[in-house]
Write a protein that binds this DNA or RNA. Sequence first.
DNA 1: TTATTAATAATAATCATTACAAACTAATAT
DNA 2: ATATTAGTTTGTAATGATTATTATTAATAA
Lengths: 157, 157
Amino acid sequence: MEHRIEKIKKQLHSHSYKLTPQREATVRVLLEREDDHLSAEDVYLLVKEKSPEIGLATVYRTLELLSELKIVDKINFGDGVSRYDLRKEGAKHFHHHLVCIECGSVEEIENDLLGEVEQIVENDWGFEVKDHRLTFHGICRQCQAAAVKEDVQKATP
Amino acid sequence: MEHRIEKIKKQLHSHSYKLTPQREATVRVLLEREDDHLSAEDVYLLVKEKSPEIGLATVYRTLELLSELKIVDKINFGDGVSRYDLRKEGAKHFHHHLVCIECGSVEEIENDLLGEVEQIVENDWGFEVKDHRLTFHGICRQCQAAAVKEDVQKATP
DNA sequence: TTATTAATAATAATCATTACAAACTAATAT
DNA sequence: ATATTAGTTTGTAATGATTATTATTAATAA
Ligand SMILES: [Mn+2]
Ligand SMILES: [Mn+2]
Ligand SMILES: [Zn+2]
Ligand SMILES: [Zn+2]
């Protein structure tokens, strides 16, 4: 944890930004909830628990800054809000997501998987890939199991 | 054009919706600007040119409906608005996009490219893929060329 | 110390989207 | 033909996320 904070502190310094107490509090929340996909409001409420004096605008500003420095990625799953997702340690590219259209759960894939596809895009389209956003929409393992169970019930009532 | 309209009309009918004049006007705009990525406001203004009596709320409702029926896909490139993108004729999956971080241009890729990756996701994550969203961020051909030119100028002033 | 600058908090303003109420249309039943 | 109904549209108000503004505070430099 402290290690990650130190690293982020350095990234900020290298762009002549400071790790203010508010920024640190925000980063700590993001680290604590690394697997979640929090909205700005979510982050704000969580930061407020430990640092009640923080303002919503500051959280927005901090998230925006972290986003510019590629420390977090701003994503949008189609509900009306932006969500902020910490980059995995040392990751060069943003990770992928599996969104279940039944239950809304979001799973993460850290494996890159797109190496070949990016080669094709660079070669055939002449496009120099810097980053990507990949989300699969479908049915998660749990919902598949639930559907099978329901079918069985219908077949043998 | 008429052929596409007919097909969409049938898709609506099969879900017991009608192709009202307003819906048809909206669809026509989407067909005419198939390669663009229009916001609801964009669509509204374009429809208004030919059918000045249409209301903004109707356009939103129509786009929402077309989106539910998978006739258009609702996407978000990170600016604050949703954009509505007609599915390519007969396409089972949504197409991909190349967004240039220099000039903002958006190019389309109709080739699927993700067959293998989806296999891996299904096998290794047990996730049943129904659709996907893939966007590459990077430098488009034009901006690459422009950058090279600039470098040459700097080297030989 | 005093001046300068960066960062924050509180709040107002903006802007995309949605909700709502009244009017309209087309289809169906009487 | 007339009344009824469900579905649709319009214009506008309301909502809600995000951004801009302004006064204040903290940090830094002169
Ligand atoms: Mn994630
Ligand atoms: Mn497209
Ligand atoms: Zn699920
Ligand atoms: Zn470009």
